[in-house]
Nucleic acid binder design. Structure first.
Lengths: 129, 129
DNA sequence: TAAATGGTTGACACTAATGTGAAGGTCAAA
DNA sequence: TTTGACCTTCACATTAGTGTCAACCATTTA
């Protein structure tokens, strides 16, 4: 598929898709026209990248970990550099921290929302009665 | 305490602390000199803000949800605007999405790391034997 | 064939968050 | 009293990611 279709299917602006290519995250084939040609599996990849960027992970890190995410289901790495491994551990821990942070704060917001809902329900009930 | 001490304790550059003030996230008292004076509880708040920003939440959203996070433990909101409530629900859901995304990808990375470790262990064992 | 649609590159602009440096005020200690 | 550490504001620079526009090429359709 071409870039416009991928943009629709992955809900990602074409501008961003071209940027991801520039950053080495998604590199499509080219048709004779020069048009970008994307394989269908790249829909998921585009969505994944958007999610990671939205979570505060810079594209340079994403470029590092993407190959590992691909290989994760199956292929065992044989010649992995210890430096890359260290970076991966670091990033894994950073992500865990982020998850904990987000979870704590999300739960606080949820608690607040629930309290507000309850308060509203009480007031509505009182008004109705 | 003054800005330098808070910077050390919260591991946040003074530049960022001033920026947070500009964004209405942390507003310290002022001494007669004009120096910023921070209460100790603001250490946690600074750390919290850093975590949220690092997780991809923009300061404008943080400014909205911070008061709720404060109130979350205790004070029940009485006069909450339905618009704010809608924004909060939205943000809560967005954070949940982020958490799921991060968790999935973190787990993939972890799996990859474990596989690499195992492979290394096998090779080392073989070499030793 | 001409218009419409969608693709290409390139450039300029913008926001968010932070780095950095200038020019200067405050205060404690030598 | 002068040095040094820390503070102030102001301002310009930078990075990431995206928006947007210009000028042009390709393909389909009226």
């Amino acid at each position: 598929m071409r870039i416009g279709e991928l943009a629709k299917l992955s809900n990602t602006p074409t501008r961003s898709l071209r940027y991801y290519e520039e950053q080495g995250l998604i590199i499509p084939r080219r048709l004779e026209n020069g048009y970008r040609e994307y394989d269908p599996y790249l829909i998921d990849r585009a969505i994944q990248i958007r999610g990671l960027i939205d979570s505060g992970i810079p594209t340079k890190i994403i470029a590092l970990i993407l190959p590992c995410l691909d290989k994760a289901r199956g292929i065992v790495p044989e010649d992995i550099e210890p430096e890359l491994l260290a970076i991966l551990r670091d990033e894994r821990d950073r992500m865990t921290q982020r998850i904990e942070f987000l979870t704590r704060n999300r739960d606080s917001i949820a608690t607040y929302i629930d309290a507000a809902d309850e308060a509203l329900a009480r007031r509505t009930a009182g008004t109705a009665a």
